[in-house]
Amino acid sequence: MIYDCRMVKKSQFRDLFPGALELMILKSLNWQPMHGYALAQRLKDISEDYLQIEEGSLYPALQRMLKTGWLETEMGLSARNRPVRIFKLTEAGRKHLEQELKSVEKMFAGVTRVLALAGE
């Protein structure tokens, strides 16, 4: 994840935990196979102002996931009817997503619980 420090104060946003970007990509592509730009738009739209995701930083992550075998590409058409490369989940990707979601939910629940109760 890359932040643009000229525009965003560091204290306002913090680094994602390792694997968070991959997880969000997997979840989005599981909902619907997309090309790079659509994926970037989707992440930007649904994260609103909570996260700052630089569009370019998706690509190294996408390549890592292609290499690991969680994703594959195929040719398709964009909303403007242009030929584009569409990223979609493989079976291994789907399995990994399920596992990761479970463990992340558990982690968030734990952190939330500790933060809520630690001060009492």
Binding site: A40, E55, Y59, P83, R85
Partner: peptide, 8 residues
């Protein structure tokens, strides 16, 4: 892919 992204 990157070129397509920028074009879109």
């Amino acid at each position: 892919s990157i070129r397509e992204h920028l074009d879109e």
